[in-house]
Design a protein around this nucleic acid. Sequence first.
DNA 1: AGGCTTTTTGCAAACCATTCGCAACAGGAT
DNA 2: ATCCTGTTGCGAATGGTTTGCAAAAAGCCT
Lengths: 145, 145
Amino acid sequence: MTNAQQRAEHFTQALRAAGVRITRQRAALLDVLAEAEDHPDAVELHRRSKDRAPGISLSTVYRTLTALEEQGVIQRHQFEGASARFEHADGEHHDHMIDVETGDVIEFCSDRIERLQAEIAREMGYDIVHHRMELYVRRRSNGKA
Amino acid sequence: MTNAQQRAEHFTQALRAAGVRITRQRAALLDVLAEAEDHPDAVELHRRSKDRAPGISLSTVYRTLTALEEQGVIQRHQFEGASARFEHADGEHHDHMIDVETGDVIEFCSDRIERLQAEIAREMGYDIVHHRMELYVRRRSNGKA
DNA sequence: AGGCTTTTTGCAAACCATTCGCAACAGGAT
DNA sequence: ATCCTGTTGCGAATGGTTTGCAAAAAGCCT
């Protein structure tokens, strides 16, 4: 069984557990999401889902995405000046770099930064509920310094 | 001369330099922005500006905010699930913590985090154009650990 | 001041991603 | 197979923000 299939199964379980029915349309979207290795937006997910569930509507895509997000199995990212993009939330936490030229999204993570964030919040009397960190970047033109 | 007056003057210069005319409406908004110590949204800025320039329209507020942002003298922040909020951009760079209960915005900055971000980007072959870091937080309930 | 050009204004309409109301439809437990 | 309840697609609504336009105001040159 591939990773994608496992993920699709995971999505299905999560929805069922929440009393959400798995329809033909939802199954299609779940598969599409499970297979996606990028960060597609709702319209793109709709486009991809139409192959497997002809006639699926954009509303249904949005509704299902919201349900999946509520169950915590996918994440919604609202990058600057763009519509929301989605990704499955099974690996460990990570943040994003967005190439401002191409729109490409690169994942990264830094325990050190996370620790500093928590430390700063605590010093000011807060606990972090969640955070958002995005680096808007441009490919280095001149090889290495 | 107060800080606010200096800032208002700074805004005025920036706009004039860009060939933008200072109208009664804009002067009012500039003052409001210069005096603001919080992070108001367009509607709130409009409300505050109406005292000094009765009849000023929300469109004018938006148009002027856009111009100021283009000149780099104010910053626009798009926090999660809220309309854009603005602040003057004269002090040094900082990031934000948002109290998820109250909506309060707290400023902070960490050179160490900034350095780590730059380092990470560089390692992956990128330069940072700008970044966004927001901590969504909740006040610690139990005093200090 | 007067006149002329260019920018700006307020209004209403347009935008765009996302959500919602609704009547027809379809899971899925029994 | 049935019934109950959740779901669908559609089109319309939303809400923050932007835009087209004709009227009004800035700024400039004498």
